[in-house]
Design a binder for these strands. Structure first.
Lengths: 350, 350
DNA sequence: TTGAAAGCGTTACCAG
DNA sequence: CTGGTAACGCTTTCAA
């Protein structure tokens, strides 16, 4: 018997201290080898039924829990998935995270969350930390502008929401060009003539929505793009600026990067004495909870957030099991228009 | 040289395969012992400056990352905190989670998230999983009705939001009795005479808010309590039921368990042709984002959510470092009334 | 100041 | 079907 085992025995036998139960303890208890116990616990068929039963019973009695750390060291798997997102307080990410946690949990994985606050640097640091933790996979809504710093990643990786130029990894996300197209077309159909766009942060989502906006406008309609951000304050400021710009005609329709931006922008309009949607119509993106219950219920575009979370997890699990299979690109999710009062105008002269 | 090392050398020397760099590799590279490298990397002062510098440089060149799993096995610490909550999509929990992740991250910890969907059973199962992962601490918004199944937990634990009867552990949360008191008093001050309460799920938060409601009503005013839940659908249903109950007088003020419930309840009132706040005034709890931008801006009670997240993390880190110190109970957080249109009535006859 | 030896708790591998 | 041996990558302990 080893010295450490003697110490252990001395400690636990008094009952004063209760050290965690180990495989070895059960083995000694039952006069088996640790290996036999290990196998029995995992239902390995090498072990006889009767032996297995005895082991399981004793383990339950002693309240034995496998030490996941020790197991990971030897198996090389942690059953941990790293989720790297800009901000859990944006409801989009909270919803995706929920779906991911659910799907991952069902497959026996836990999710480690990591915020980046949209900082590319923090993101890289966090990913490195997660890699040193040996997470089995990574799900990232990246704040990077290029794929440079993400190329070195060895861990199976699936990106979502934002595309990275030249990145070979799997991706799950909405067809944002279609988002922009649908939103703008809807405004055109509602009779809007001068449609402005409050664009979001410099990420692929925002780029693509802008492209869709331009697609819809075509040659006939002039574009009017204003930089905003992703929150209501930035929407408010951008709309204020737009209204103050005397040089141009006031827009009669605004396609906003997302719902919070739209809410801020609508506030700016209402404060300026304009009517929504009669003077200015609005479309947002996200389908936030309660956006149908706002001062002016908001027309928006639903991204099927939960489906994105499920899908991204499924892809990652696939990646992880099937090794380095060539990533079969998955079609983008189709957005869905949800019409509410903020964009519903009486038919105009056509 | 061990057999495994020979294999490794054969594999890596061809350049075809790149195995992760280990302490040993750096050591061999530099003609040092693994120990010297280990110490140098951790800035241990046993090692000379020059040696340390060389080690750090080589580690950076090889892109070495400490294997956290191996380290955990020997140190017994994982730098992992388990966060167990009912639902990440309730903005309260998303905000607390954000604050926790921030505070924990600053101290070098990662957060593993686990939803329970308000199921006491799922909660216990998740906690056991987290324990077998050897998380260093647990933060739990418990769905248990008693402390029975949580007593056995050895891992340092801090509860938040919901109190558990007879639980000795630390707790961080709002003074919910005061919440109920403030809300109801406010309605009384606004001239309401018949104040109903839509109570939430059977948890301490809801219990305490109910107590505060009763405190405020005193002997003079009759109480009227209806079971609701925590979402807008349940608020809508509860309010419908209340209005349909012809036996009693319609309430002229309603204190709702939280903002979503209040939103649902207001909807029911407006649909019934009642005016808010003139016929019925409302107060919610939570201070959701955009609750000032609803069809009727909602009077609510702010819980200082981020502060709760910071505090609960601080407490846990304290617990973890200071061992089994007697948990110094922390005062409850003070709620704050935020008055908006949903409860502002013209002064009534007094 | 440095390094050798001894684990940490588990599982993989292979010989009985 | 069973069980011994070695190893996973790191750190703690203690002797040189």
């Amino acid at each position: 018997m080893k010295f450490s085992d003697i110490v252990r025995l001395a400690l636990t036998s008094t009952g004063d201290v209760s050290l965690p139960v180990r495989l070895k303890d059960i083995a000694r208890d039952l006069g088996l080898s640790p290996m036999a116990v290990s196998k029995a616990l995992r239902g390995h068929k090498d072990i006889g039924q009767e032996t297995t039963r005895r082991v399981l019973q004793r383990a339950a009695e002693l309240n034995y829990r496998t030490d996941a750390v020790a197991r990971s060291l030897v198996t090389g798997r942690t059953f941990l998935i790293g989720l790297v997102i800009p901000d859990l307080m944006q409801s989009f990410f909270a919803e995706v995270a929920t779906a991911i946690e659910q799907a991952a949990g069902a497959a026996g994985y836990h999710v480690v969350i990591s915020h980046t606050g949209e900082s590319a640097q923090v993101e890289v640091a966090n990913i490195e930390l997660l890699e040193s933790r040996k997470v089995d996979g990574l799900i990232v809504a990246s704040a990077q502008r290029s794929n440079r710093r993400l190329r070195a990643i060895k861990t199976p990786l699936v990106l979502f929401d934002r595309v990275l130029p030249g990145m070979q990894s799997q991706f799950v996300g909405t067809d944002n060009r279609k988002v922009g197209l649908m939103a703008t077309q809807h405004l055109l159909e509602q009779g809007c003539r001068r449609i402005a766009h409050l664009r979001g942060p410099l990420l692929s989502t925002s780029e693509d929505r802008l492209k869709g906006y331009r697609d819809a406008l075509g040659k006939q309609h002039a574009e009017q793009v204003v930089e905003a951000g992703h929150d209501d304050a930035s929407g408010y400021a951008a709309m204020k600026a737009l209204l103050a710009d005397g040089g141009r005609l006031r827009p009669d329709g605004v396609f906003c990067f997302n719902d919070p931006v739209a809410i801020g922008a609508m506030r700016a309009c209402l404060e300026a004495g304009l009517r929504v949607p009669d003077d200015v119509a609005f479309v947002g993106v996200a389908n936030m909870r309660f956006s149908d219950w706002l001062s002016v219920p908001l027309t928006t575009i639903d991204q099927h957030t939960a489906a994105i979370g499920m899908q991204v997890t499924r892809q990652l699990l696939n990646c992880m099991t099937s090794g380095a299979k060539p990533p079969a690109p998955v079609p983008l999710m189709s957005p869905e228009l949800i019409v509410r009062a903020s964009s519903l105008r009486r038919p105009r002269a056509r």
